[in-house]
Structure formats: structure tokens, C-alpha cells
Design a protein around this nucleic acid. Structure first.
Lengths: 223, 223
DNA sequence: TTGTAAATGTAACAAATGTTACAGATTAAG
DNA sequence: CTTAATCTGTAACATTTGTTACATTTACAA
């Protein structure tokens, strides 16, 4: 019935038959939207699950002065604001705009809750999604809590090393990207990298980093 | 049977009878611990739900150099690492130490999942808990993303005003506390407050803030 | 009231990062 | 190979924040 949803993290593991059966039991509606349409405002109560089926949506965080801060894009088949359907606040964190024409499925919260009870695989999937968001944010915070650029570089490299295991790290990011990821300016990042190279902590070439002094690198994060 | 758990967010809304019935169907075990005991290490896979019933636990974030960074305490009846039982990582984010003697209930993940399917109120409670964590972290990140101390002060005040509605904000925090919350040093915070007062944005006395120029305050957050 | 601890104001200086501008290096497209 | 776009190195200077130290004020208990 809605084969696109089979690929969504929420319905992972279900067959098309099972999904069709499920939707025969769970009230839902399909809604089409057009480019530029405003689907939700920040602060709106979230009382329904929204599943993006076609098209592209864009979430814009807006600050107190009314300016747009951060933009996140969402592609199908994904759930919108999954971590905000439940919880004490349950308000939209962003303004939700349509970047293209498309369609969404809407399931009211009560029905959504029933669906989770009905099909425990969907329940586990949903909990995995929300937990994943929390874990992602938790990692983000660890990173944002690092004060200096040196610390961020050290953390970044050590994070990469951990997955690799060597003293060699491949980079797939440009310094320009990294600077944005770190929330610092590009020249500042470049300067700090040079400094650390001069201190013989590592050598940083275009596509890889070679650690020369793991001890020093660790000690940067020691307080 | 375990009346203390009635007050836990996870079992909110259940009667003692219902809870007792539930635990007759869900395998679980009680484990006692002693002061100083290490209950879990950061990185350990999380394959069981841990509910603190008595005593006090302490989570310590540890950095690469082996130093303790942040400490969070946990009091009963709370679930430990609720947002890390599911999700792609599913590893303990902290070292879990016992501050006092006490006891925990352990429910294996499979049994826990069954319990959520079995009793939809507990399921919703659990989803509320995890969603709440994600939302809390999301707000934290918004705050940490602010670059300058001025922005943090502006954001903080506007946040307070929004709940109040006036141009008057009561403070229950000392500057020393606020500085820590903002992640800046106390003299820097004090200095910045003075500067903003000189710019006639607000007056900041011991126990309240009076906004004198809301426009300026807003414009600080405009980019 | 007085004494003490905590909170706050303040200043001089150091350190880190941002800003701006430009030159050289690298990459990818034609 | 040539060219244009992107990425990177670098420098001078401005701005912000941290560090340290001390004075002043406030709150609270004896």
C-alpha cells in the first residue's frame, strides 16, 4: 500500500503485507503539500505523528529576533520531529517548510500510541529512533563542552583513532567543513593545526593525519 | 510489592495491584550494592534496564586522559541511563558508582521490551522519559551554541521573560552559579553584565533584572 | 551588633579566537 | 593542459574571554 514506508526506520523489519494489515487497523490520513507551504510553526503542540513520504521538508530554527538560525533538511521516508511527539514539552522545535511538493502521512497521537502497542517491532523501532536522537545530542554536547580549539581537534582525532585503532586517521572532511562543525572560523582552525604540528603532536596533510605523540594528544583533554 | 517504584516516572499511573501483577509476569531481579562499588563502566553494552530503588548512584563522565569530567547523581526511584538501553550505540555513557549502600532492580532488555508491549502505560511512560531527555539535551545545545557571553545573557533573560511576560525577571541564582551554568568564568560574566547595564539594556540587581530596552536585548541574538 | 563567609565589582594583563585580506596550492572540469 | 573554483597557509590586528588578585558589599549566624 505504501511501499515507501517499508524503508523507513519506523517500519523496519515489517513485510509489505504486515504493513498493509497494520494500516488497515490504524487510522491515518495522507496530505499533500506544495512548495513553500508552512506545515508547522515552532511552538505548535505536537499531537500527531508526521511521516514524510514524498518531497523534501526543511526545518528552520528561529531565534528571538525572528532570524533564521539553523536549517535542517528532511528526506523521505522519515518521521518529523520524532523526539517531540511525547515528553513534557511536546512542542515543535522548528518551523517546518516544504522545499518541494510532496506528501505526508498523519497519524494522531492516540492512534500512534495504539499502533505502538499493537506491533511491538514498530514500538522498538520508534524507541530506537528517539534513543538514537538522545544519544546523538548527548555526543554533540560532549563536543560542544570542549572549550578550546585544541581540545576539539584532539577529541576529534581521538574519536577517529578509536574506531580505526592505529596512529593514522583518514580525513574525508575539508578544514573548511571541520571549522563549521567545530563552530570556529577556518583561519583559527588552520592556525591551531599548525601550532599543534609544530609541537610534534601530529602531521596533518590533506587526506590523513599521522599521530606522532599520542600522550600529548591525550593530555590536552586532561583537566 | 515494590511500592517505591510506584513513584517512579516509569510506572506512573499504575496501582500497586497492577504493578504487582506486572512483576509477576516480568522476570526481574533485585541486586544490592555497597558504597563505592562500580556498577558499570563507560562503554559497557547496555543490555538490561536498571531501576534504582534505594541508595544513591553517581555517574562520572571520564575523558580520554582518564580524568573525571562531569558528575551526575541519581536518586531513587529513577531509571539508570534510560536513553541508552535502545538506539544504535547502546553503550553506557558514564562510569556508574555507588555513593551509598542500596539496591537496584534489573530487567533484561528482552523482558523489558516485553513489559512495554504488555502494559502500554509503561510504554508511554518510558517513551516520555526518553523523549524528555532528548528535549532537554536539545535545549542544552541551543544554549551551548550561543557564542558570546552577551548572547547567553540575552537568551537567559528572554527565556525567563517568556514564562513571566513582563519586563521584570526574578533571579534565584547567584552570578557564581550562572557563570558555571553558562560555562564561563565569574569575572567575565560580571564584566559583561556591567557592560550591558552601561548600554542601558537592563539593570541587574541581586534578586531581579529589569529590562530597559527589549529591542536591544533581542537584537543581540539576531544574526 | 559584630564577625565571617559568600557574593560581587573591578582592574591589569594574558591567552584564545575572530576578522579581514591576500597568496599559494590543489582539485576538478573542460 | 589550462582554467576556474575551492581549499589552505599566513599575517596583522581587533575582540572576547580567561586569569589573578584584591576591594567592596551583602547575608547570616553568633
Amino acid at each position: 500500500m505504501y511501499p515507501i514506508l517499508l524503508n523507513s526506520p519506523l517500519f523496519r523489519g515489517l513485510t509489505l503485507e504486515e504493513l498493509t494489515l497494520l494500516f488497515s487497523q490504524v487510522k491515518h490520513q495522507i496530505r499533500h503539500f506544495r512548495t513553500g507551504e508552512l506545515l508547522a510553526q515552532a511552538g505548535d503542540p505536537v499531537d500527531k505523528a508526521i511521516l514524510l513520504m514524498e518531497g523534501r521538508l526543511q526545518g528552520e530554527m528561529v531565534d528571538f529576533a525572528g532570524n533564521s538560525l539553523k536549517i535542517e533538511e528532511l528526506d523521505p521516508p522519515q518521521m518529523v520531529a520524532a523526539a517531540f511527539l511525547y515528553g513534557p514539552k511536546s512542542k515543535f522545535p522548528v518551523f517546518l517548510n516544504a522545499k518541494t511538493d510532496g506528501k505526508i502521512m498523519i497519524i494522531l497521537k492516540k492512534e500512534f500510541t495504539d499502533m505502538l502497542s499493537l506491533e511491538s517491532r514498530v514500538m522498538v523501532n520508534y524507541i530506537n529512533i528517539v534513543s538514537g536522537k538522545a544519544q546523538f545530542l548527548s555526543g554533540k554536547i560532549t563536543f560542544l563542552s570542549l572549550r578550546t580549539i585544541k581540545e576539539k581537534i584532539a577529541y576529534y582525532i581521538l574519536q577517529m583513532v578509536k574506531s580505526g585503532g592505529n596512529n593514522y586517521v583518514a580525513i574525508d572532511q575539508t578544514q573548511t567543513n571541520l571549522a563549521e562543525l567545530f563552530g570556529v572560523t577556518r583561519p583559527s582552525l588552520s592556525r591551531t593545526i599548525q601550532e599543534m604540528e609544530k609541537q610534534d603532536i601530529f602531521t596533518w596533510s590533506r587526506d590523513n593525519i599521522v599521530i606522532k605523540d599520542l600522550k600529548k594528544l591525550n593530555s590536552i583533554l586532561g583537566r
